[in-house]
């Protein structure tokens, strides 16, 4: 459940620090623990990746 979504949170923190992760959480309105309980749907994943790219200022090309 939500393993890929959780990984997006980790990538954001790894590449932008907790500064970026908190901005990501604020903009999505989601926490890592909340997405852990959600389903990894392709649409949700794409949506989060899009916001992550906006927060980091660069695409996450190596996700898959």
């Amino acid at each position: 459940m939500g393993k890929e979504l959780e990984r997006i949170f980790d990538i954001v923190a790894q590449r932008g620090g907790f500064d970026a992760r908190m901005e990501f959480a604020s903009r999505t309105g989601l926490s890592k623990s909340k997405v852990a309980k959600a389903k990894d749907t392709p649409d949700l994943k794409q949506k989060l990746l899009k916001i992550a790219a906006e927060v980091l200022g660069r695409e996450i090309n190596d996700f898959d």
């Binding site: 604020s26 903009r27 309105g29 989601l30 959600a38 749907t41 649409d43 949700l44 989060l48 916001i51």
Partner: peptide
């Protein structure tokens, strides 16, 4: 600054087709 940020309200309970409400999001 936090309240002025563009904030998305993402619905974790989207249906299986991934059809969410764009207006809401």
């Amino acid at each position: 600054s936090a309240s002025e940020m563009e904030i998305y309200d993402i619905d974790l309970n989207m249906d299986k087709n991934g059809e969410d409400n764009e207006k809401q999001s």
